[in-house]
């Protein structure tokens, strides 16, 4: 038992954080997907992290992906990293679709996914190729093969679409319950990792504000009402983190508890994000309820990710079915 990140993993996380602090400032995070940044992310190795080293990737595993996505959440990065790096590339690797894998890992082809467990496809107009589930099989479609309808989501930097297949178009990539269920669980874990990063960022944002903002002649962070609120938010974040990392290990090791562990990651990261965003909003007060402050970017992302790939209630039921089954 050695439940700890390696030096390389911590260094990798640090590199990603530095990159995103520069290239994904809150102003940029509001504006949506950007292909130049995507190319830079690919160059950094972030996009093709899970692709084999001889297919343009780094050959790294789920824990590394989770660290990447945690940072993406922290920066509110408006790019389809869950869809491409976490779901599509491992799926293409599994299905041995090597040409597409290489292009995706290089950052040349942006991907999104539509899974049966989800009504919508994210970033569909930014993606070059959509991997869509039909029954127990996955198909690759070009954007022209489908009709897209942008939905009016409150989180416009993470656009969601209704997708209609126009014809019999599309190439079957692979099939089988193992393939599609694993893809879904990867998406769930990706959302959990981003929610964790969002939660962490919101606690820090609130703590920073509480140190600066004065009322009654003191920083509001000196009042216990604020201290305890933020302590509770941090508690949720710190206890969600090992839950999320363990879920990554469960996918990596093909654990027979994979579904349970991934669901618990979503429930815990979702809970941490909810607690942290609410605590941050209450600490910031009226300014947090505006678009002049950046908090709303993270709040909205937390809502859209909470709703994506199974709500906390869906996942709690999945856990209960295993634990009590």
């Amino acid at each position: 038992m050695k439940f700890i990140l390696s030096e390389e993993q911590m260094l990798f996380r640090h590199t990603v954080r530095e990159f995103l602090e520069k290239e994904c400032t809150p102003e940029i995070a509001r504006s949506g997907f950007n292909r130049e940044r995507w190319a830079q992310l690919a160059q950094l190795g972030a996009v093709g992290l899970a692709a084999p080293a001889d297919e343009g990737g780094l050959g790294l595993g789920e824990v590394d992906l989770v660290l990447l996505l945690e940072e993406a959440g922290r920066a509110a990065l408006p790019d389809p990293l869950i869809e491409t790096s976490m779901v599509a590339i491992p799926l293409l690797r599994e299905a041995e679709a090597n040409d597409l894998l290489l292009e995706a890992a290089d950052g040349d082809v942006v991907m999104s996914v539509g899974l049966a467990g989800s009504r919508y496809v994210t970033y569909a107009t930014d993606a070059d190729v959509l991997l869509l589930q039909l029954g127990g099989a996955m198909f690759a479609l070009q954007r022209d093969d489908v009709k897209l309808q942008l939905m009016p989501s409150i989180d416009m930097a993470r656009p969601v679409f209704r997708v209609e297949w126009l014809s019999e178009a599309g190439t079957k990539i692979g099939e089988g319950a193992d393939l599609v269920e694993a893809a879904f669980d990867r998406a769930v874990l990706g959302a959990a990792a981003q929610l964790l990063g969002i939660a962490q960022r919101c606690v820090e944002m609130a703590a920073d504000y509480a140190k600066e903002r004065h009322q009654f002649g003191k920083p509001i962070g000196s009042f216990q009402a604020i201290k305890h609120k933020l302590a509770d938010a941090l508690l949720m974040v710190e206890f969600a983190r090992p839950v999320v990392y363990r879920a990554a290990a469960s996918i990596a090791e093909v654990s027979h508890h994979r579904e349970r562990d991934v669901s618990m990651a979503k429930v815990y990261a979702g809970r941490a994000a909810k607690r942290a965003t609410r605590a941050a909003l209450q600490t910031l007060g009226a300014i947090g309820y505006t678009q002049e402050h950046d908090l709303h970017i993270w709040m909205k992302r937390s809502w859209s990710l909470e709703a994506a790939w199974g709500t906390s209630d869906f996942h709690r039921d999945r856990i209960a079915d295993e634990v009590m089954g």
Binding site: V203, A207, P219, G221, F223, Q224, I226, K227, A231
Partner: peptide, 18 residues
Amino acid sequence: NEIQRNIIAERVLGLPRS
């Protein structure tokens, strides 16, 4: 737990002492 929350807020989050 009230004291613990003070400790968390002050020593982990760096909030000012009352």
